[in-house]
Design a protein around this nucleic acid. Structure first.
Lengths: 182, 182
DNA sequence: GCTTCGAACTTTACTGTTGAACTCTTCAGG
DNA sequence: CCTGAAGAGTTCAACAGTAAAGTTCGAAGC
């Protein structure tokens, strides 16, 4: 089960011992992997949040910038498409774009060829914020993995992708949004 | 950087190629690990969310139940303590407890010895929901790891914990809440 | 034994997200 | 053409979270 954060955070080992006390048939090895995954992810999000905050944007805004950049030149996508890629409802996307337009990170125009469509485009400022965030992120990530040899990194990545494939087969996206529940 | 979800989800490899196109000095091996971690976590949360939804609770409520059970008999904690363990503000905890009391998952009483304090206790129903969720979670987790040998599981857990220690040293909790920044 | 300080929780006002209802365009059929 | 259905985006009400102000009780000094 996903780990529960907390300041008075017990070590993973302590926590697993507590679980075993309350729930006998628990595989500690499995639990260790799952708990560590969950904690690690939380810590990483905190780190990313601090970095983006330094740039005066939120992680949420960073995600929009990423999606636009990954789309490639000319860095333009419709709100609906963006919403799908970010795993948000169209309604949330509308609001997020409102803010980002106000902050000058993206532009919103109507598509002249199909006036029902809207096009969100990256501004110069948006692109440079993305670049800056990317630089900080890669520095952090390199630090994070510094204790692992190149060979270990490869094995770790390979195992994680194997897990990912496993989840994806038992849980196909099936068009549904894939967002964190709760 | 954390992965951006999405339905039209490209494979990790495709996504990394796109990043490299836009940002030259990116270490693909590091990126692979980081992206896989992020995606995996999201998928896992979706899975947990489906399971808890079957029980008629949310992941958020499940977290409260977990904290109470992990506290050990008599399964009682104050709202402030709970808030710390879950990485929430006290205000959010108040509201969450409101709901859970209404649903019969926990009780809220004033501490008779110190009438400023409040005590949140697990109900029978709360405990049994936790147990049920735990059963489902462990089944899912075993499935998730089924492609890894025992030895691989051990190595994976060990590497993840090494990463975790690394973030924890560079990012001590320092009393601050450790929640996902958006 | 008042008074003041601080701790524990709640209240209030605001932000971001969701689901459902709504608007506006496009397009296909009669 | 004109109508009706489908698609894209926005609006609206409700909900969960935060920060900051408010309340209430307990404890420490004088």
């Amino acid at each position: 089960m996903p780990d529960t954060p907390g300041s008075a955070e017990p070590s993973i080992e302590e926590q697993i011992a507590a679980y075993q006390r309350e729930f006998q048939d628990l595989d500690p090895q499995v639990e260790k992997v799952v708990s560590a995954l969950s904690r690690l992810n939380r810590r990483m999000n905190v780190a990313y949040g601090r970095q983006t905050a330094e740039l005066g944007i939120s992680n949420a805004e960073w995600e929009v910038l990423k999606a636009l950049v990954l789309a490639g030149v000319p860095y333009r996508l419709g709100p609906g498409d963006l919403a799908k890629r970010l795993g948000l409802t169209p309604a949330a996307m509308t609001h997020r774009i409102d803010r980002m337009v106000a902050e000058g990170l993206v532009t919103r125009e109507r598509d002249e060829n199909n006036r029902v469509r809207v096009i969100v485009g990256l501004t110069e400022e948006g692109r440079s914020k993305w670049l800056e965030a990317m630089r900080m992120a890669t520095v952090f990530e390199e630090e994070l993995l510094q204790d692992l040899s190149g060979e270990e990194r490869g094995r770790l990545g390979e195992m994680l992708i194997r897990l990912l494939r496993r989840v994806e087969t038992t849980q196909p996206d099936a068009g549904g949004r894939l967002r964190d529940l709760d």
